[in-house]
C-alpha cells in the first residue's frame, strides 16, 4: 500500500511525536508514505471563515499535488480531514468554480480533478479500517494491549457533518476507534466525551469555555476507568494533553490521564517502545501506560 501523505502542521510542530510515530507505524504495517513536502496548511476552517475561495484554492493545490503522484492521500489530523473535506465538497459541486480555481493553480502546472481515478483523502483511522483492513492489522499485532483500558476521542472534524464526511458510504466511521482499540487487544472505555468537542478552536477566544470542555472529557474518562485516551487529531491532543494541567484548574479536580495519538497506540501493539513513539514528550504522564505495556512484553 502506497499513499500520498499530508502530515499537517501541528504534527511537525507542537506534537512532533505524532509525525514520528506515524512514520514508524506505517513502516511496520507496510504502508509506504510519499510526503507532500510542497503542500500547504489546510487552513483548519479558519481560512475558510475568512475567505472560502482562498481555503478552497489552497486545498485544491494540495489535492492536485497528491493527484500528480497518482496515489490517494492520507492525513493524520481530524481537523485537516474536516477542513479539506469541506473544501472538496465545494470544489466538487460546481464545474465552473473548479475551472476558476484550476486557473489559479495553472501557474504551478497543477490542476485538481474531481473524477481522478479513485482518488480519496482519508485520515489514518479511515485508511486503517477501510483500506488496510482490520484483519490485516490484527495479523500485525505483536503485543496485544490486553487489559489496557482505552477511551476513544474522535475530534469533531471526522464526525460531523455526516453528509459531508462520507457517512452515507461508510456509516460506521463514528465507531472505528472502538474497532481499532479492540483489534489491538485493548478494552474500550465508554464515557460521555468520546464524540464531543475538545474545545481547542476557542482556546485564544474563550479559554474558560475551551478548557472546561477538555477538562470535563478527561475527567469523565478517568471516572469511567480509562488508562488513557486515544485520538486521531493533534489539535484535540493539544487541548486534552498539553493544556491538561490548565484544564484541571478550570474544572477544579485532579486529572492526569495519558492521551495517545492513534499511531502511538497502534505502534505499542506493533511492539514499539514507548520512547521510540515519543510518549515521554507528552505533558500528561504516560508512565502508567508504559508500565502496563512493559508488563505485557
Amino acid at each position: 500500500m502506497k499513499l500520498a501523505y499530508w502530515p499537517g502542521c501541528v504534527s511537525r510542530g507542537f506534537t512532533p511525536e505524532l509525525h514520528g510515530s506515524t512514520a514508524l507505524a506505517a513502516d511496520a504495517l507496510g504502508i509506504e508514505l510519499v510526503t507532500l513536502d510542497r503542500a500547504n496548511c489546510t487552513g483548519a476552517g479558519v481560512i475558510a471563515e475568512h475567505n472560502q475561495e482562498l481555503a478552497d484554492t489552497l486545498n485544491a493545490r494540495t489535492f492536485a499535488l497528491a493527484q500528480e503522484t497518482g496515489l490517494s492521500m492520507m492525513n493524520i489530523c481530524s481537523t485537516c480531514q474536516g477542513a479539506q473535506s469541506e473544501c472538496q465538497e465545494r470544489l466538487d459541486a460546481d464545474a465552473s468554480y473548479r475551472a476558476h480555481i484550476n486557473e489559479t493553480l495553472s501557474g504551478e502546472g497543477l490542476a485538481y480533478s474531481k473524477d481522478a481515478d479513485g482518488f480519496t483523502n482519508k485520515n489514518f483511522l479511515w485508511v486503517l479500517v477501510e483500506d488496510y483492513g482490520l484483519d490485516k492489522l490484527a495479523e500485525k499485532v505483536k503485543r496485544p494491549l490486553e487489559g489496557l483500558r482505552v477511551g476513544p476521542f474522535y475530534g469533531c472534524y471526522v464526525l460531523r457533518p455526516k453528509t459531508r464526511l462520507g457517512y452515507d458510504e461508510h456509516p460506521d466511521r463514528d465507531l472505528y476507534l472502538e474497532q481499532v482499540i479492540e483489534v489491538l487487544g485493548g478494552t474500550v472505555v465508554d464515557y460521555d466525551g468520546a464524540r464531543r468537542c475538545c474545545g481547542f478552536p476557542v482556546i485564544t477566544m474563550n479559554k474558560e469555555t475551551s478548557l472546561r470542555q477538555a477538562g470535563t472529557h478527561v475527567g469523565d474518562a478517568i471516572d469511567a476507568g480509562a488508562d488513557c485516551l486515544v485520538t486521531p487529531c493533534p489539535l484535540c491532543h493539544l487541548n486534552l494533553d498539553m493544556q491538561q494541567p490548565e484544564a484541571a484548574k478550570v474544572v477544579g479536580r485532579d486529572l492526569g490521564l495519558a492521551v495517545l495519538h492513534l499511531p502511538q497506540l497502534v505502534g505499542l501493539a506493533l511492539g514499539f517502545d514507548p520512547k521510540q513513539l515519543g510518549m515521554p514528550k507528552h505533558i500528561a504522564s504516560t508512565i502508567a501506560v508504559e508500565d502496563r505495556v512493559a508488563a505485557l512484553a
Binding site: N40, N51, Q52, E53, L54, D56, T57, L58, R61, E89, R90, D92, A93, D94, Y97, H100, T104, L105, G107, E108, T163
Partner: peptide, 25 residues
C-alpha cells in the same frame, strides 16, 4: 505559488452557496 493563490482569491472572494446550488448541483 501560495502567495499567488492569496492574491487571486483575496481579489475575487467567491462564496459558493451549496444550500442554494445543492451539493450535486
Amino acid at each position: 505559488h501560495v502567495k499567488h493563490i492569496y492574491e487571486r482569491a483575496e481579489e475575487s472572494k467567491i462564496q459558493l452557496n451549496l444550500y442554494i446550488i445543492g451539493e450535486g448541483g
